[in-house]
């Protein structure tokens, strides 16, 4: 907060605009590269031609473009979910994966996949994802409140809930091998096999979340001045907090239903965005979304290239990069306080 006050007020919107434009350009460039590279490498002009109906239109529109779009949308959703959780729980190390929400969503999806009739799966899997994510969030808040938790306690509760969900998922994989391929994707997190239908359903879901994101972004700027400021404006801090958690759950559910449980991205992206545009929410929200999209695109690209001809799921790449960040974040925080 003091940071925001000492910075020149006028330059901030310009800076944010510039950062967002730069991030947006990077996303586009990376998306084009990502479309160009693959089992059949395409030159950039063939990619551009293919996007507008050239000879490579089939491979691009059916295989490569869906992956890229899904990565962008899911990355943005996970990053925003991380931001909202960090604000709502007042916890810099909160994010949908650290607190176990992504694993809960994956478990819900698996249960739906295994135990509902095949004809229902179109509806039951999204419902399972949402219920799983919401259940973990509820448990987390209930247990966290019971524990009277500091930030580390809450994170440890989330980690153990996530570990439990993961163990149950592994159990289900051995017990009911029928859905094992899809389950592996939910466990590791990957954009592999995304389709146009996935894009449509994820877009509809995220569009439905968008009003909540915008309203919360406006409220957050008020809430950084403290609960009293919120109250004086007639807003209950608990309602705002509940809205943040709910929206984070909805965003996470959408992302997990498309790409599985991708770790550490929701933790990392808000921090990077905060470094670039400062703490004000109306700047932070777009920058975080773009950073998340960029991060997942990058993780996906690295995973595809680093071990050719094999493909390492983006979730694993994200963990290898993001995990050390959490490690050092904790130590740095400890040193700063100690």
């Amino acid at each position: 907060m003091s940071m925001a006050l000492t910075q020149p007020q006028m330059s901030q919107p310009w800076r944010t605009t510039l950062v967002c434009i730069a991030l947006g350009l990077l996303v586009v460039v990376l998306a084009l590269i990502s479309i160009a590279l693959g089992a059949v490498p395409l030159s950039l002009d063939r990619v551009v031609a293919g996007l507008f109906g050239g000879p490579d239109a089939f491979i691009i529109s059916q295989y490569r473009l869906p992956r890229v779009v899904i990565a962008i949308l899911s990355g943005a959703a996970l990053a925003l979910a991380g931001l909202f959780l960090q604000v709502a729980l007042r916890n810099p190390i909160a994010s949908p994966d650290v607190v176990g929400i992504t694993k809960g969503a994956g478990l819900g999806a698996m249960l739906a996949l295994i135990f509902t009739p095949p004809a229902w799966i179109v509806w039951s899997v999204p419902a399972g994802v949402i219920l799983g994510a919401a259940l973990v969030a509820l448990l987390l808040l209930a247990i966290g409140r019971g524990l009277g938790g500091g930030i580390t306690t809450l994170a440890l509760v989330g980690v153990s809930l996530g570990a439990l969900a993961q163990a149950v998922m592994q159990f289900l994989m051995v017990r009911y091998p029928r859905g094992i391929d899809q389950s592996m994707v939910w466990l590791a997190g990957s954009t592999y096999g995304s389709t146009v239908a996935d894009i449509i359903s994820l877009s509809i879901w995220l569009l439905a979340c968008l009003p909540a994101v915008v309203i919360l972004a406006m409220m957050l700027d008020v809430s950084t001045f403290g609960d009293d400021t919120l109250k004086s404006l007639g807003l209950s801090p608990n309602v705002v907090r509940a809205g943040l958690v709910l929206t984070a759950v909805a965003l996470t559910a959408g992302a997990v239903a498309s790409v599985g449980s991708i770790g550490f991205l929701g933790l990392l992206a808000p921090h990077v965005a905060r470094l670039m545009v400062g703490p004000r929410a109306r700047h932070l929200v777009p920058a975080t979304a773009l950073t998340g999209a960029l991060a997942l695109l990058l993780a996906d690209l690295i995973g595809r290239l680093v071990a050719l001809p094999n493909e390492i799921p983006a979730g694993i790449v994200a963990s290898v990069i993001g995990g050390p960040y959490l490690f050092f974040l904790l130590l740095w925080e400890a040193r700063r306080r100690g």
Binding site: I93, G150, T152, T153, A155, L156, V159, A188, G263, V306, A307, N310, E311, I312, P313, G315, I316, V317, S319, V320, G323, P324, L326, F327, L330, L331, E333, A334
Partner: peptide, 25 residues
């Protein structure tokens, strides 16, 4: 508690690296 959380983060990274090495090979 913080050290335990850092250790768990380390463990998650190591597990992810094991998976990556296994898939790559």
């Amino acid at each position: 508690l913080k050290l335990a959380l850092a250790g768990i983060a380390l463990q998650l990274v190591l597990a992810a690296m094991v998976q990556a090495v296994l898939i790559a090979n």
